[in-house]
Simulated assay, not measured.
Amino acid sequence: MERGIITLNIGRPNLHRWNGMTVNSAIRKKRVEEVMLTMEGFIGDGVANREFHGGPDRAVCLYPYEHYEQWEKEFNKPLESPAFGENICVKNMLEKDVYIGDTFSLGKAIVQVTQGRIPCATISKHNDMDQLLRRVVETGFTGYFFRVIEEGNVDINSSFEIIERKQEKFSVLTGNQLMFHDRKNRQAIEEFIQFEELAEVWKNKFAKLLNK
């Protein structure tokens, strides 16, 4: 199954004017043909809100290409990648088919899935779709993050090649379900946070839920 890149995108935070408010965000990324991927992310890329983005566990953000068609139909409005501020838009890597801990080669780099994305209102503001954030959370079609295991160059012709799958119980979509909709499922959460590959910030969030 081909997991080829549709767009490869980087960008630094900038000030944006939305609904009369000035917001600092890196959502407006630009397409590139080739870029170096380091442990902290792509060279030339950056984040504004480090609570939800950035750091070694969230070095790369991916959004599945297939979701674009759904949102365009639902909101009757064209969307063009990187509408979700993703570094990579790719086919055949839906949240339901990718598992926490999955390790892939990507160009000369090696990356590992760490967590689903926790989206914020910026995606609604950026795309002028008031209900987009709500629908992304409801569906779990959030996209997800990778840590970088091995640094290397990535170009537009690179594709994701699976190296290792450590488990097949907790997909990104299953993790999103726990995070957004099933927070009282203590048994599943307790099992989920045992995975070494899960991002530390998610382990901490779920641990706080268990301690309430």
Rank of each mutant, 00 (worst) to 15 (best):
T38Q: 14
R28G: 13
Y99N: 05
E86N: 08
V23L: 13
N87Y: 05
T103V: 12
H67L: 08
S124K: 12
V32G: 05
I149W: 03
G152A: 09
K30H: 12
E74L: 15
K125W: 12
V32C: 10
S105I: 07
Y68M: 11
P82M: 03
V137S: 05
F75R: 04
V148C: 05
K108H: 09
D155A: 02
E95F: 07
I123V: 15
T22W: 09
V136G: 02
V47A: 09
V113C: 06
F75I: 04
V60A: 10
E66W: 01
E51S: 14
Q112A: 01
G55A: 11
E51Y: 13
G44Y: 08
F146H: 13
F75P: 02
Y99C: 00
V60D: 05
N92E: 11
T103P: 02
K29I: 06
Q70S: 12
T22P: 06
R134C: 01
G85F: 04
R28Y: 11
E66S: 11
Y63N: 01
I110L: 07
E95P: 03
I118K: 12
R31T: 14
P119K: 00
R31C: 12
F75V: 10
E86A: 06
S124N: 09
A59R: 08
I110T: 14
A83C: 13
R28K: 15
M39F: 15
Y68Q: 12
E40V: 02
G54H: 10
V136W: 07
I43H: 04
R135W: 09
Y144W: 06
E86V: 08
V23F: 05
K30Q: 14
I27S: 07
G44I: 10
G140R: 03
G116E: 08
I100C: 04
Q70A: 13
E80N: 14
I110Q: 07
N153I: 13
L94E: 08
G152F: 09
F145V: 02
Y65L: 11
V23A: 04
K108W: 05
P82S: 15
E34W: 01
N127H: 14
L94A: 11
K29V: 09
W71M: 11
N24D: 12
V60M: 07
W71V: 08
E74Y: 13
N49W: 11
F52W: 09
D102C: 00
N153Q: 14
F146G: 00
V35S: 02
S105W: 02
I100G: 03
T103L: 10
C120Y: 08
C61V: 01
H126Y: 15
F141E: 14
F75D: 00
E69M: 09
N153H: 06
L79T: 12
A109Q: 01
T22H: 02
I88P: 03
G54R: 05
R135S: 05
N153D: 10
T22I: 15
D128N: 15
V148T: 06
V137R: 03
E69A: 15
N87E: 06
M93C: 08
A121Y: 15
L132S: 06
G116P: 07
E86H: 08
V137T: 05
D97G: 10
S81R: 08
K108Y: 12
W71Q: 02
Q115H: 07
G46E: 11
N127L: 08
A26I: 04
R28P: 01
K30W: 03
I118V: 15
D57C: 00
E66N: 05
Y144V: 02
E51G: 13
T22R: 11
G44F: 01
G140A: 06
E72H: 01
P119H: 03
